[in-house]
């Protein structure tokens, strides 16, 4: 298992020779290159399938839908999950704690949370996507429609008629 330092772009070639594991370059939409271990990149099903198809590993992968800030955070997740073992109870607990802290930090900045969610969806990083969507779903739980609209900046666009219908349904429910 490689011990590459994720986002460190420098000395990638040297590391590659030392570790014997391939390094993969991911490029954000701002043109910033992130060099990650293959194990880390394989967290993304999108990249995994491209690597397995024997595609452009050397050229790197441009990610036109992801900005640098988001990509850095996504890579942080992938490094943790791709480069670390999760065999023992302790290792799994450590990963669970990482996830908890990771999502707590993201939850504080909703806009960024949505960016990371979209990136996780685009890159098909299942674990990260489940983590962020569950976090957003938890925000919805226990709120009234008004509170939900406020929390998510959703515009109220139901007509009085829609509202009546829904009210009627609510009395059944």
């Amino acid at each position: 298992m490689a011990t590459g330092s994720g986002a460190a772009a420098a000395a990638a070639d040297a590391e590659e020779k030392e570790s014997g594991s391939r390094m993969i370059t991911l490029t954000s939409n701002e043109g910033k290159a992130f060099v990650v271990t293959e194990a880390s990149a394989r967290q993304s099903a999108t990249i995994r399938s491209m690597v397995d198809d024997g595609g452009c590993v050397d050229k790197g992968f441009p990610l036109p839908n992801v900005d640098s800030k988001t990509l850095a955070r996504v890579i942080q997740y992938c490094d943790e999950h791709g480069n670390k073992e999760a065999h023992t109870v302790d290792e799994r607990a450590a990963l669970a704690k990482f996830d908890k802290d990771f999502i707590a930090e993201l939850d504080a900045d909703k806009a960024f949370l949505y960016d990371v969610t979209m990136a996780a969806n685009y890159l098909h990083i299942q674990g990260l996507f489940a983590l962020t969507t569950q976090c957003i779903a938890d925000t919805i739980k226990g709120k009234t429609p008004e509170e939900i609209r406020t929390a998510f900046g959703i515009e109220y666009d139901l007509t009085a008629q829609d509202e009546e219908e829904i009210k009627e349904e609510d009395t059944h429910a």
Binding site: T117, M118, N121, F129, T133, Q134, I136, A137, I140, K141, G142, K143, T144, P145, I148, R149, I154, E155, Y156, D157, L158, D162, E163, I166, E169, D170, A173
Partner: peptide, 25 residues
């Protein structure tokens, strides 16, 4: 993505979520 978020919610919450906006409904 909104669908994939809503799908994680229990029915009791979904019944309330109707009234949020047209898209959710």
């Amino acid at each position: 993505i909104v669908e994939l978020i809503l799908v994680r919610l229990p029915v009791s919450t979904l019944l309330r979520c109707h009234g949020v906006c047209k898209q959710w409904d």
